[in-house]
Simulated scan of single mutants.
Amino acid sequence: MSTILEMLRTLEPESLDDMIDLTAKVINSLVRKGDQNKSIHTQFYPPNNKLPLISIRDYIHRLFKYSPCSRECFIMSLIYIDRLMLECGLSLNSYNIHRILITTLVISTKYQDDIFYNNEFYSQVGGINVQEMNQLELELLRLLNFSANCSNDLFIQYSREIDNLFERNEYMSCT
């Protein structure tokens, strides 16, 4: 199983303009792998039987545009997603990724930033109702054993790999 951190280390830097492109590329790759494995289409609570109409890239763009949170929150979201895959065996797929993205962002914002909005605000950004947002937050925290912390070293690893990828991208575009 590929992790986001492994992908950041090996990703080709072509056409990555910003954090949205990077996040979308990594997440789309993981979702494609999860969609191929039909036997493990584990749904993220509560079950979602319809595919969302918005693309993953457009959804990530929406989260970046309307979520008043720091870059560090988006990095923490990637760390949480890796933890869900590695520690909980959760498979990302087209049915659960949108919910996982908004929920990891909510938890990372509440944990990481000094200023954050309530779940009603984030439910509007994420396109779900507030009751579902509350259930998703509780379910994700349960899966993470109510541990939203991350070691400083691990956070620096992810951040450094993202910065290195953008540096490689900039170098490639200059040559």
Results as ranks from 00 to 15, higher is better:
L78E: 07
C73S: 15
N37I: 14
I75N: 05
I100M: 06
L53P: 01
H98P: 07
C88M: 04
T23N: 13
F74Y: 03
Y66R: 07
S94Q: 13
Y45T: 04
I97C: 04
L101S: 08
C69L: 08
V31Q: 01
N96I: 04
A24I: 14
L51Q: 13
K25Q: 11
F74K: 03
R32K: 15
V26A: 03
S70E: 09
I54M: 13
R71P: 01
L90A: 05
L63D: 04
T23K: 06
H41F: 10
T23G: 06
F64A: 05
Q36I: 02
C69G: 00
R99K: 11
I81Y: 02
I27H: 09
I20M: 10
S70C: 11
K38Y: 06
K25T: 15
H61Q: 14
R57N: 01
N49T: 13
I60W: 01
D21K: 10
K38W: 05
L51C: 06
S29D: 12
R83M: 02
M76S: 01
L84A: 13
K38M: 09
L86R: 02
K50T: 14
H98F: 02
L63Y: 11
S94D: 15
S94C: 14
K65S: 10
Y59N: 06
L90M: 15
E72W: 03
P46G: 02
M76E: 01
N96L: 06
H41M: 10
I40N: 14
P52S: 11
T42E: 03
I75Y: 04
I97A: 13
A24F: 10
L53A: 13
N93I: 03
C88T: 09
Y80N: 00
T103L: 05
P46R: 13
Y66T: 04
A24N: 04
R83Y: 03
C69K: 02
I56T: 03
H98V: 01
T23H: 12
I81P: 00
P46W: 05
F44I: 06
L53E: 15
N93A: 09
V31C: 01
Y80R: 07
V31H: 00
L63R: 08
E72C: 08
N93H: 14
K38E: 11
L30N: 01
I54C: 02
P68L: 09
P46A: 10
D35H: 02
R62H: 15
M85D: 02
E72G: 13
N49Q: 09
D82R: 05
R83D: 11
A24Q: 05
I60P: 00
M85R: 14
T42D: 00
I20G: 14
